[in-house]
């Protein structure tokens, strides 16, 4: 298997607060990793470092063979290969659903408008909101917005998808529709790193589980082992509370 993401001894500080402590992580192509942990444990910071929405101060982050640091000139190129879905959707409210999806392919990947619209419709169909294409984000439900955000990221045809608590801002009823789309994506062979508390989803799709606490990776294990016999006490405690 090919390594597509590699983190070596990554440290990150927000002023004096250390958010990531000596994080080491390898992700293979088509691997699905679910990261869980209490709030403030550095899960989001970790995946946001992978597309440099946050800057790490020490260590190496290598994405698809390119190291990410302040010297990276074409960080936009790497970001174009790494899709991200946010907790708050972050759709562009001034653009229609279709335009949300075609904007980046047209301007960043220089795709012809027609082609971009085809790709967008294909992806919108995939997340089952093709009928909403002409509407604006403000007119959609939370679940539909999040699926649109997923489609928008997929339109860039990324190699890796990052999910930063994609269902935490949703009504319970809408969580399933988003998770369904994500399961579908996982089955299609996408490399995924997902920060979530949806343990049902984790059991279904994750190859590996990571538990983080206080900026450290406390435990990394195969999904089955992680749930059946967690090694550290901290993980046990967390799982007992969440399950």
């Amino acid at each position: 298997m090919n390594k597509i993401i590699e983190l070596k001894n990554v440290n990150k500080w927000f002023d004096k607060f250390q958010a990531l402590k000596d994080v080491n992580l390898e992700v293979n192509q088509q691997e699905k990793i679910v990261i869980c942990g209490p709030s403030g444990s550095g899960k989001s910071t970790l995946i946001r470092c992978i597309n440099r929405l946050e800057e790490h101060q020490e260590g190496q982050i290598i994405v698809d063979g390119k190291e990410i640091s302040e010297n990276t000139k074409d960080i936009e190129k790497i970001r174009a290969e790494v899709g991200m879905v946010f907790q708050q959707f972050n759709l562009f409210p001034h653009l229609s659903i279709l335009d949300n999806c075609t904007l980046a392919p047209i301007w960043v990947k220089k795709m012809p408008k027609k082609k971009a619209e085809e790709v967008a419709m294909k992806n919108l169909e995939r997340v089952q909101i093709a009928d909403q294409a002409k509407k604006f984000p403000g007119q959609l439900s939370g679940g539909q917005q999040q699926r649109c955000a997923l489609a928008r990221a997929l339109c860039m045809e990324p190699k890796i998808m990052l999910f930063d608590e994609p269902t935490s801002a949703l009504d319970p009823e809408m969580i399933k529709e988003v998770l369904d789309s994500m399961v579908d994506l996982a089955k299609a062979g996408m490399t995924m790193i997902v920060v979530t508390h949806e343990m049902g989803f984790a059991k279904e799709v994750a190859d590996n589980m990571i538990f983080m606490d206080e900026g450290r990776i406390v435990e990394k294990a195969k999904t089955k082992d992680f749930f059946d016999n967690p090694r550290s006490d901290r993980t046990k405690l967390f799982l007992s509370q969440i399950l």
């Binding site: 597309n51 929405l53 936009e76 190129k77 970001r79 174009a80 290969e81 790494v82 899709g83 991200m84 946010f86 708050q88 972050n90 759709l91 562009f92 904007l103 980046a104 301007w107 960043v108 990947k109 955000a149 928008r152 990221a153 860039m156």
Partner: peptide, 14 residues
Amino acid sequence: PKGQYEAAKSLGMG
């Protein structure tokens, strides 16, 4: 909101 900047960046926009 900061999210708009982040979403734009995450799509590879300079």
